[in-house]
Design a protein around this nucleic acid. Sequence first.
DNA 1: TTGAAAGCGCTACCAT
DNA 2: ATGGTAGCGCTTTCAA
Lengths: 348, 348
Amino acid sequence: MEDSRKNEQCRRDDVARRAGVSGATVSYVFSHKRYVSPDLVNRVMRAAEELNYHPDMIAAAMRRKSTNTIAVLTDDMASPLQIEIIQAIQEAAMNSGYFTHICGGAKCLDGYIDDFISRRVDGVFLSVNPATVDNASIQNLLDRGISVIITSRRGFSDGRVCGLELDFGMGIRLIIEHLKELGHSKIAFLSCFDESFVFDRRLKRFRERMLDILGEEDPVVFCGEPPFESTIERGYELAVRLIESGKEFTAVMCTNDMMALGAMRALREHGLRIPEDVSVAGMDDILFARSAYPSLTTISHRSEEYGRRIFGILKQNIDNKSVVSREKIEPSLVVRESTGACRQRQKT
Amino acid sequence: MEDSRKNEQCRRDDVARRAGVSGATVSYVFSHKRYVSPDLVNRVMRAAEELNYHPDMIAAAMRRKSTNTIAVLTDDMASPLQIEIIQAIQEAAMNSGYFTHICGGAKCLDGYIDDFISRRVDGVFLSVNPATVDNASIQNLLDRGISVIITSRRGFSDGRVCGLELDFGMGIRLIIEHLKELGHSKIAFLSCFDESFVFDRRLKRFRERMLDILGEEDPVVFCGEPPFESTIERGYELAVRLIESGKEFTAVMCTNDMMALGAMRALREHGLRIPEDVSVAGMDDILFARSAYPSLTTISHRSEEYGRRIFGILKQNIDNKSVVSREKIEPSLVVRESTGACRQRQKT
DNA sequence: TTGAAAGCGCTACCAT
DNA sequence: ATGGTAGCGCTTTCAA
């Protein structure tokens, strides 16, 4: 009767013995950290193959003091934009031999950060509302030499924290200019954040651009309340409030595509046709912006490139401990069906 | 001039020294694996706090030979259903002290599996088209005592592989019964897989149910081609083929919601109103099924519970090495706007 | 109830 | 160009 569970794995020295070399040589063959003669390389590789050897990265990590692992912390795994970015990070990481811990959803995000330290990750990308993570936690990571990238560095002064941001200001400009060309001037903004929220500037940028581009000093704005969720439901609710307010508008811009999807439903339910009666624009260009009906005019952030750059900077910081200053990603306008020429509509 | 990078972390024995106890005691305080007197517990906790001690889980993993880490391998991170499931797994894992490696997107999924072994993960959930992962790779995991759950065990004989499946057969029954009640009998099916694809039974189940419930022996079916993608685009294409075929239908069922979203667009572009002219049903109840216009009738898999159970079984296998036999998750019908009473429409 | 000490499987330094 | 070997920071057995 043989044991069906053969947990006996072969180790480095088993390979070494079978190849007739030292353990060190086996390590060097796998790590490429010093020259090994072709003959020995072959013998080692053959032996490893025959024994089905898999190097123990845990043991290696312990010695080397680096795990080839990064972590991504997000506060919204349901957001397609976040997923697109995370996927890009994950792929870039894998191409460099890094694994990615993807974390989110828990109430207490600070708890994750302690775990990042215990698990000795090499770098962390914080894709979260900065208000939900304590500065002390971030400092804790830095004190241990863990590289950190955060979407908004606002409120944090340590120069080693790199902020790579999406350029919402530019996105908002592109949309307003697009709407202006279509003849719109009464543009309402549905913001998931309120005026007091300091980490997101979309609302502020909207006001600035409305002034710059349209000379509008007091545009129609409706804001969500804490907890600031940019969900389909919130978009729906805010649009209802906008409609019921009786304020004039011929176009609606939203914090993101999710909100725009909800807003479109509300508008439709109130008998407004899109884009004949009212134009709608979102932001992020999520997969479902394209399949919506009508398809959604929005702003693309090049999330793939963004994700790749996140990992690139992280890797650079891990390797060189060099500081990379704050950057932004250039967005682009994607015009679809939800925006159209402004026709002054009858107030119902 | 002081070095700004204080990578000196404190270790277990630093805590021990400060608390006036042995290193072993510090370990036991943190692991709760043996009784330690309240006095010592307090001293250790205080010392740990003061030194900001974070246990090194890498070192622990090396000794213990288990990393408290699981891995999820998916071939479709863009699918909201997958994300919902993965999120549920991740949360359940976190609640039990496990971290989750989420992997996917790479061409070569087998490559990830070697990495799972090297990184000594405790368990793996393979949420992939079984055709894309080699059985030898799975055997490799099992040989090393790594627990495995795979969505479909078909084609794999090792009893230790647990298959937890979504019950598509039941979902399809629910939809057909729903459509029948609405007076439909000409129901077309748009399948991302073709008849030869053995790992997915949705098409097969559709034929069986159509026979059972409606006595239809040869329903209208359009299939995708390899690589079998159940995307919005594929749904659109298949619906166009259906429409242009001239075949009669009053309702359309799709492999999943993504395909249904694409199909709705195609139908609309061809002048068919939903649900007045044709009813459409999807499957999976992704977030965007609700916000679509019209909102989509579909099948909910209780993805949250599914994810939790995936982790539960994985954990059980990790702890006891016990085998859990194949199970299924009970789905439920979600009726929305995209299905309505059948009115025999004019062929255009 | 607590402490001492033997490793876990590697990396990388010091030899040769 | 290759080998020997000292640890990395823990867990856990054995002893007290």
